[in-house]
Nucleic acid binder design. Sequence first.
RNA 1: GCCGAAGUGGCGGAACUGGCAGACGCGCGCGACUCAAAAUCGCGUUCCUUCGGGAGUGUGGGUUCGAGUCCCACCUUCGGCACCA
Length: 831
Amino acid sequence: MAKAKDRARIDRYDPAEIEPRWQARWEADQLYSARVDQARPKFYFLTMLPYTSGDLHIGHWFAMGPSDARARYLRMRGFNVTFPIGFDAFGLPAENAAIERGIHPKDWTYRNVENMRRQLRTMGAMWDWEREAISADPAYYRWTQWFFLKMFENGLAYKKMAPVDWCPKDNTTLAREQVIGEERVCERCKTPVIKKDLEQWFFRITQYADELLRFDDIDWPESVRVLQTNWIGRSQGANVRFRTEAGDPIEVFTTRPDTLWGATFMVLAPEHPLVQSLTTPEQAAAVEAYVQQTLRQSDIQREAADKEKTGVFTGGYAVNPVNEERIPVWIADYVLLSYGTGAIMAVPAHDQRDFEFARRFGLEVRPVIRPEGTEALDGAAMREAVPSYGAMVNSGPLSGTTADRAVARTTEYLEQRGVGEAAVGYRLRDWLISRQRYWGAPIPIVYCPEHGQVPVPEDQLPVLLPDDVEWRPTGESPLKLHPTWRHTTCPICNKPAERDTDTMDTFMCSSWYHLRYLSPRNAEAPFDPEEYDYWMPVDTYTGGIEHATMHLIYTRFFHKALRDMGITEGNEPMLQLRNQGQILGPDGQRMSKSRGNVIDPDEQVSSYGADVVRAYLMFGYRWAEGGPWSDDNIQGVVRWLHRVWSLALETAGQERASDPAGERALRRHVHRIIRQATNDLEAFEFNTVISGLMELTNALAEARSSGLAGSPEFRKAVEVLLLLMAPATPHVAEELWARLGKPYSIHQQSWPTFDPAALAEDEIILVVQVNGKVRDRISVPADVDRAEAERQALASETVRKHLGGKTPRQVVYVPGKLVNIVVSSTPGSGA
RNA sequence: GCCGAAGUGGCGGAACUGGCAGACGCGCGCGACUCAAAAUCGCGUUCCUUCGGGAGUGUGGGUUCGAGUCCCACCUUCGGCACCA
């Protein structure tokens, strides 16, 4: 009695028992530790490192579980695969959480790291924990600072004034997420937020803009390449130097130099340095009020093309260098200081935004382009701008220039007269890396009254973040407030000097973490060159599409800049990129603690086991799409694994004489699924990997009920099923593999290969259509020829009925697929 | 607003280069097993139907022998927009 009960317990699929056991065994055996091995082909599989926000949510599993499955698959294919993990640990949320809970950001962060490590281990992923790196460790950020110094040494880091969102009451910089609503108020005190100029560090990413537009060497999704291309926003045109009546130059960038004679006014960004000198006393109050109003808006609000145009006349005038015409200068929020030169020549006849502005304020609309085949435009009567190219008219000496030469000829004309030249403009701005915050890597620069900006010598790195700091909001940068920290001596003259009290953007940490994974404990260098030579570049990189324009541009820039310094090799850090979508909360909204819709993977794992959760996330969603969390379908995966469990174990001891026809059919099925699983894993189509495995399971169940269990082909099929399952459901596959007496470990076996010969069929089904509608299906020999296929199709009873005695006008034959008999030119009327 | 992606049964989703729409699951219905229930197993399940068939992949057009797939216009949802990461 006790014995039977015992066996019943053991024989039931019990993930809670088998999963921790195998995880411990794999770790003890260092099964997934990947070391440099010149004899084997390497594969660097990287998945975006998680932020130490506290708890993993199910979205992390969605990102990492399928990635792990694919990394495991590649390992079975014979690659020496490294699949490292680490933590992005600096950043604003640590400070926010610290303020809310009165806990130090460092303690909060490292407590979270502990918890996340524990959670990650339950996934049974093949992480190589020896490569773990945490960006907030001094041993890590030492090298983040070192890279800053390299950028500085190589002229890629510089300081300039730039606006930040600023709360005038708290006297502090605000992040975008701390500015609330259309009204743009401070999240803490609800005070209206303004822009404030601070001197900040930038990296010259624009120097690499053209190279960043080239994607020849990399297999990245089209959507990401397009997003990056648009983000960089290269446009070709000309710089034109207008001047104020006082003689100050106002440079503008335009993509349409050919419309220069149509400039009837100029618009400056309200923050433009010349606004003050241009403004006349009568306009001063209106201009000042408008500037203040603009400072309260975000760039997105300012650029929105659908809102009503606003602006104010400065009272000043500029002179158009090609015709010496005096035109009024306005300010308007739709001109941004951060794009181009912060000033535009307005050509309302040929630019829609300028047109709307001109109509709103009664400014002249003067057409200077006549598109081919159209009447001459009448500025007063126009209802919208005409942005097309055309022959130049009303353009002084250049009138009559044809569309194909207009831009080039105007540019030459500008160059000859020394008032402009061909130029390329980018939407991309240099990368602002200064943050007025505590929880980040300090910028390793010292300000000496005598020597100015002095880099901290490399042997003095890291510049440690002090622990004893007031990180609550006080109105000042926390490091500035520390009694002693910023006081130091100049590395050159040894006289008193001050440290930079800003820290670096966390995107800086994540721009090179893939290099630190190579040798996380190296104290001599950011990474070990031998490891670099073997592992880099990253072969597959997975992560969310939301990183398309920031992290994924920054890390490419970083790599290219380091390449030019001789630190890295090759043009790109990551060869293949694939993006997964997001798992939303059950309410269809993005998961967040404040919404209370976060799905905790721990609960799912304790209810169902890691294998079920992994397989369910692969099966239930399109990986590239994601979607709202729901566990409605998870029972299907639970049932599937139970079925595999009993199928494998109940048939284990059986022996049976062969049944050639049944076995051939089973073998055909097995090889079809091998092909499908292989192709789908290659293509990151994880849902059909699992559905294929379910189909194979169903085929095995059917084979068992038709008495095939125990036959050689059946046993082979069970083995193949387990091998194909190993990447997705590593624990149950390992357990059943062991119970079938196979050698440890299933994860060290080769991936099954597919035999095309096994798929050959004698008979195929041809679809027969009449006028494109399916009317019958006929079984024909696989090698049937056209004449025979048509003959059999026309012989079909239902087909004859639908032909209604008419003679076929056309017969379309697609070998192996269908015969379509067309009797009428009007679709459907033949029926 | 701009850039990008996606819209297919009651639900998640499948459909290689234009060729059987709805694979695989969930849910639901019926049946078997059971005293009963759960679990499990089997069968069915896009909608309408006068049982001949007809309609059907966000909406409206178009190309084609044939369109979920290609083209044009539109609608809705999601992601990003430079200090969340």
